[in-house]
Design a protein around this nucleic acid. Sequence first.
DNA 1: CACAGGCTATAAGTATTGGTTATAGCCTAT
DNA 2: ATAGGCTATAACCAATACTTATAGCCTGTG
Lengths: 303, 303
Amino acid sequence: MNIESLQMFCLVVDEGSISQAARLSYVSQPAVTRQIHQLENFYGALLFDRTDGKLKVTEAGKMLYPFAKSIVHDFHRSKESIKQAMGEYHANLHVGASFTIGEYLLPSLLGRYKKQTPDIKVTLTIKNTPGVLEDLSNDVIDMALVEGLVENKEFMVEKFADDELIVVCSPEHVWGEQIFIEELINERIIWRESGSGTRLIVENSLREYGILEKMESYMELGSTQAIKSAVEAGLGISILPRLTVARELKLGLLREVDIEGVTIFRNLWLVKKQQRFNKIGVSQFLEFIQNGACHSSKLKTKK
Amino acid sequence: MNIESLQMFCLVVDEGSISQAARLSYVSQPAVTRQIHQLENFYGALLFDRTDGKLKVTEAGKMLYPFAKSIVHDFHRSKESIKQAMGEYHANLHVGASFTIGEYLLPSLLGRYKKQTPDIKVTLTIKNTPGVLEDLSNDVIDMALVEGLVENKEFMVEKFADDELIVVCSPEHVWGEQIFIEELINERIIWRESGSGTRLIVENSLREYGILEKMESYMELGSTQAIKSAVEAGLGISILPRLTVARELKLGLLREVDIEGVTIFRNLWLVKKQQRFNKIGVSQFLEFIQNGACHSSKLKTKK
DNA sequence: CACAGGCTATAAGTATTGGTTATAGCCTAT
DNA sequence: ATAGGCTATAACCAATACTTATAGCCTGTG
C-alpha cells in the first residue's frame, strides 16, 4: 500500500472532493479516483458514498481517516528525522502564542532559545487563544503557549511558567509600597472587559477575600495597553499581569503595590498535540522550557 | 512509498539479513534488496552498512526504524479496524499474565469478559513477569497483567485490582479467628524463597511493625502450591495472597486468621504498550476492568 | 425545459514499478 | 583451494500508475 494514497485519501476527505484534491496535488483527476479505488479495493469497503452526485465519507472512511493521518504524519516525521541526521534539514519550529504571551514574554524567550540552538529556525504566530488552538489542531503550528487551561483529549498540556497579577498605580498615587486588601474597595479600578480570562482570575481571587462585592466597577477598557495608559495618567489603578507591565515598572511609569498577604498567580500553559513523534526542535524546546528558562521570579523588579 | 517496503525494512533490521527476511516473506532475495534500495534512494541515506560482508544498520537506519514500526503498526490496526466495522473481523485479544494472576484470577475474569463480549476471542499466555513483559514488548501479547510495578517508558501501567496477603494456618491450629501481630513471632512460618515479590511485600510490612527482626526463618519453599500443602499438613503457617488460597479456604483445607489492626495489600497491574491506536478489544477490556470487574472484596470468604 | 458547468467513472495508451530467475562478486570457514 | 553463505546487478515479464479523452450524472440558470 502506498502512503501517498493514504495522504491523498486524507486530502479528499478534507476537501470533500476528488477533483479538488487532484487540483491541489497537481495530478489528473482519474489518478486520484484510482488511488481511492485502490484503497477501497484493499480495505474491502467503500470509503465514499457517491449516490446523488455528492461525495460523502462512509463509516469505513471515517474509521480509516485517523489511521491514515497518523501514518502520513509519521512518514513526514521520518523524512525530517533522517534529513536532520544527514545535516540537510533545518527544522522550522512554528510556535503559536496568545497576545499577552506572544507580545510580552516570547520575544526574549525565543531569543534565548535561538541563542542556545541556532540551527533551528523559529516562527512565531500571535493570535487569540482559540485561534492559536485551532492552528494547533490543524497542524499549522507545532506548539502553543497560552494562558487559559485547555481541556481537550487531543492535546497535551503542561505548565511552563506562571505569572503574577499585581496592583499597579501611577507613581503619584498616595499609596506606599504595601496596602491592605480592604484599601482597594474605594479605589477607582480599571478593569478589562468582562469575559477576559485575566479579569476572571482577579475577580475570583477578590471574591475569596469577600471584597469583590463591595467594589464598584469604575471603568472597563478593551486592551491592556489602554489600561496601562489610563493608570499612567492617574485615572485609577488596575490589577495586571506582571509580564505586561514589567517595562513600565522599570521605567518608573507605573508603580507596583503589594497587597499584604495576597498574591494572585495564574499559570501559563504549553500545549502540543498528543503524538508519538515530535517534530525536530519541539523536544529541545520542551527541554529548554522545563529547565527553568522561564520563571516569574526573573521578571520581578523588586529590590 | 510502500508500507510493505517499510515493513520489509523492519524485518531486515530484526533479522539482520536480507536473505533471511526474503525467506521469511516467501519472496526472492533481489526483491528485498530492491525494496531496501528504494528506501535508501527515497530517504537519500544508506540504511545499512555493507562493508566487510556484514549487514550493519546505519545511524539513518536506526533513526528510521521506530517510524517504520509505527507506520506498519498503524497500518495493521487500520485494516483490523475497518474489517471489524464491516463485521468481518473477530478480534483475538492476546493477554499475558504472571503465574499467580494467570492461574488464580484470570480464569474467572476472562470467563466473565467473554460472557459480556462473546465476539472477541481471548488467548491467555502465562509466564513469569519478565517473560510476560518481553512478550508485550515484542507485540506477542496485547496486554499484560502482573503483580510487580513496572517502570518502563514504553509501557502504560494501571492498577486494575488489589490482592490481600493473609495469614493462613491449618484448620487444627490453636489460633482463633484473630491474633495480635506479636503472636506471629514464635510461629513456624513458611516463606517463599528470598527475592520473590510476595515475600518482599510481607517482609516490608512486618518490618514496619518491628517484628520481622524477631522472627526466625523456619522453612522456604519455591512454589505457592508447596507452601499450601505444607500449611495444610500442619507444618507451619504462612502469609499468602488471598487469591491463591480462596479455594482452600472455602473447602476448609486452610483457615484464615486476621491480624488485629493489620492488613497487607499489594496492587495488581495492567500493562500495555503506550500507543495511539489500541487493538480492537483492548479498549473494551480496559473498560471492563475499570468498571470494577475485579475487586479483592469479591474474593473474600468472610461471614 | 434545455443546457452549461461542475462532478466522478471508465477506457486506452504509455511509463514506471515490483516481482521473477540467472549470475557475478565478496567473505568466511573448512 | 574451495564450498557455501551473503548482497548486488542484469534481463525479463506482469502489474501498477500515470496520462488524455470521454461518458454519464447532477445542479443551477436562463
